[in-house]
Simulated scan of single mutants.
Amino acid sequence: MSKMILVNLPVRDLAAATAFYVALGGTVNPQFSGENSTSLMFADAIGVMLLTHDYYREFTKRPIGDARADSQALYALTVDDRDVVDATVARAVAAGGRADPNPAQDLGFMYNRHIEDLDGYVWEIVWMNTANA
């Protein structure tokens, strides 16, 4: 089996969070989705697992933090060109996200913007032209 990255996130409203991550570009994997969780794939080896708070608590004894109050991590998704950065942010805003909680960066060879999901997790949408870096 090839290696994968799976990000597990506790969410307050599973249906709304699922709609947001579909707008962000994820595809629902019904094989690992149910009433307490949604599995979304962004690439063959990159997935996000959304879990209700009650279900998430089955995997940890630690309290669930509030990503709206404290920065816990920054997640980044790459896209194919700089116009897709703006289009992805626009789709995510239409699904309930908040655009640009952090400043956009335009370095010429790299362009990024940020989108905050409904639970406060911040995703960086990045286009990079590594040939010109």
Rank of each mutant, 00 (worst) to 15 (best):
G25F: 08
S71L: 15
A87N: 09
D54Q: 09
A23G: 11
D66P: 05
L9F: 11
L14E: 05
N129A: 09
M4H: 07
A95G: 06
V84L: 09
T88W: 03
A90I: 07
A133C: 08
L74G: 04
Q31G: 02
N112T: 09
A15I: 09
D80I: 08
V84D: 10
I125S: 04
A76P: 01
W123A: 00
E116R: 03
T130H: 11
D13E: 13
M41P: 00
F42C: 06
T52I: 07
G120T: 03
S2F: 15
P10L: 03
L40K: 04
D54K: 07
R82I: 02
R113L: 07
F20W: 02
N102D: 11
V48C: 00
A73N: 06
A95V: 06
S39K: 04
I64N: 04
S71P: 06
L74C: 11
P63I: 09
K61Q: 13
R62W: 10
R62P: 03
D86F: 12
Y75G: 02
S37H: 08
A95C: 07
V84K: 09
V48H: 02
R62Y: 13
A16G: 01
Y56E: 02
E116G: 00
G120D: 04
A133W: 10
N8D: 11
D66L: 04
S2E: 14
D81V: 08
G65A: 14
Q72M: 14
G96F: 09
R91K: 15
V126F: 03
P103C: 07
V89F: 10
A131V: 05
V28P: 11
G108V: 02
Q72E: 14
G120L: 01
D81W: 07
A16C: 00
R62M: 14
M128I: 11
V122T: 11
A94V: 08
D70C: 08
L77I: 15
V48P: 01
A94G: 10
V84M: 11
A92S: 14
D54Y: 03
P103F: 08
A73R: 03
R62F: 14
I46C: 06
V79L: 04
F42S: 05
G26N: 06
V93H: 06
M4G: 06
F109G: 00
G97D: 10
N132C: 07
V126G: 02
D44A: 13
R113Q: 11
G108D: 05
D119P: 00
T27P: 01
M1N: 13
T18W: 00
V48S: 04
N102T: 06
R68M: 12
A131M: 12
M4Y: 13
F32H: 10
Y75E: 03
Q31I: 11
D83S: 11
N132Q: 14
N112R: 06
A19I: 02
G47P: 08
A16Y: 03
L118D: 00
I115N: 00
E35N: 07
N132A: 15
D66R: 04
F42E: 02
F42P: 00
E35Q: 13
D54L: 02
R91Q: 14
R12C: 07
P103T: 11
M49S: 09
D44K: 12
M4Q: 15
F59G: 14
L14T: 02
I46M: 08
A131E: 15
A67W: 05
N36W: 01
E58N: 09
F42N: 04
A104F: 00
T130V: 12
I125F: 04
A104P: 02
R82S: 13
A94W: 10
L50W: 07
D70E: 15
D80N: 13
L40R: 00
L51N: 12
